[in-house]
Simulated scan of single mutants.
Amino acid sequence: MRDQEAGWVGARIATANGTKDLGPFQVNSSWIPKLAKVTDRSHGQIRSWLEQDACFNVQAARWIFLSGLAASGDYLKAIGIYHSPTLWRQRRYARSVLAHLRRRFGEAVFPRQAMREASPSNVGKTVDPLKLIRR
């Protein structure tokens, strides 16, 4: 996912829906209220950490991904959930990340069968990532 996101420390990229993608893992600003609540920190502190602290950004991305994995029980679906609550965007993103994995680790580790399993007809239901963890 890092290869796909391609962000950097200090990144603040505007999105079409008015949110911002922040830091190395391009964590969407829509996560700030949830992250502020679970860490008992201010929205401003979370925004700053997501933008400027690579370690916090990576840990936030990990938390979002693992929340998707807990909700879906499926690695590939969790990759899509990390990206978007919209099913077609989840599918497209999962296929793209899988292509990055194949380039990085090779066909033997991520065979083409996995690519077929990521096809639009096979990657699961729409899951809203902001509703994954209740606290």
Rank of each mutant, 00 (worst) to 15 (best):
M1Q: 12
R2F: 02
A6T: 00
G7E: 06
G7M: 08
R12H: 03
I13G: 08
T15H: 01
N17G: 05
G18F: 08
K20W: 09
L22D: 04
G23F: 03
P24D: 01
V27N: 04
N28E: 06
S30T: 14
P33Y: 07
K37G: 13
K37R: 15
D40R: 12
S42D: 10
H43A: 11
G44P: 04
G44H: 08
I46R: 02
I46N: 06
S48V: 00
S48G: 07
L50W: 02
D53I: 01
A54D: 10
C55W: 05
N57I: 05
N57G: 07
Q59H: 12
A60E: 08
A61D: 04
A61H: 01
I64A: 08
G68T: 06
G68K: 03
L69G: 00
L69W: 10
A70F: 02
A70W: 06
A70K: 12
A71D: 11
A71S: 15
D74Q: 11
L76Y: 12
L76R: 07
K77E: 14
K77W: 15
G80N: 00
I81D: 03
I81V: 15
S84Q: 11
S84P: 08
P85A: 12
T86I: 15
R89G: 13
R91E: 07
R92Q: 15
Y93V: 12
S96P: 00
S96T: 14
L98N: 05
H100R: 13
E107K: 13
A108D: 13
F110H: 05
P111N: 14
R112F: 15
Q113I: 09
Q113G: 11
P120A: 09
S121G: 14
S121N: 11
N122D: 09
N122T: 09
N122C: 11
G124T: 03
K125R: 13
V127Q: 09
D128C: 06
L130G: 02
L130P: 00
L130S: 03
R135P: 07
R135V: 08
